[in-house]
């Protein structure tokens, strides 16, 4: 493998790892369920995407590349579906979203 590709693969893997960890931290830091779904989405989109792309570059032109692409496409289809279903179920069950204390954002906000 050429040096350039190697570097790109390294960069993708490291960035992906960073996004995954940040998403994990967000999962713990955020105040309520709805805000937690956003960092969880972080790990599923760019985190997973960059790691899988890094692995794809690493594997070169082979069938493994196709399988990694399939995993990525599958994740990109299912993860928003699962998040949406979860958030919808939570909202229907009566869970109230957390809002910033003191800021009644929905009324005060002027519609652009």
């Amino acid at each position: 493998m050429t040096l350039a590709l190697d570097l790109v693969s390294w960069a993708c893997l490291m960035l992906g790892a960073a996004f995954v960890v940040i998403g994990g931290i967000g999962l713990v830091r955020m105040p309520d369920f709805f805000t937690r779904t956003h960092p969880a989405g972080l790990t599923d989109t760019l985190g997973a995407g960059l790691i899988l792309v890094g692995l794809m570059i690493e594997s070169g032109w082979s069938l493994n590349l196709a399988k990694l692409a399939m995993i990525l496409i599958f994740l990109l289809f299912t993860s928003p579906t699962a998040s949406h279903a979860l958030a919808h179920a939570a909202l229907v069950s009566g869970l109230k979203p957390w809002t910033k204390p003191g800021a009644d954002s929905e009324q005060n906000r002027s519609k652009p």
């Binding site: 599958f74 289809f77 299912t78 579906t81 949406h84 279903a85 919808h88």
Partner: peptide
């Protein structure tokens, strides 16, 4: 009746 779930499942199955 869950629209998104229905469409995505049809695609995946």
């Amino acid at each position: 009746e869950h629209l998104i779930l229905r469409v995505i499942s049809k695609e995946l199955i």
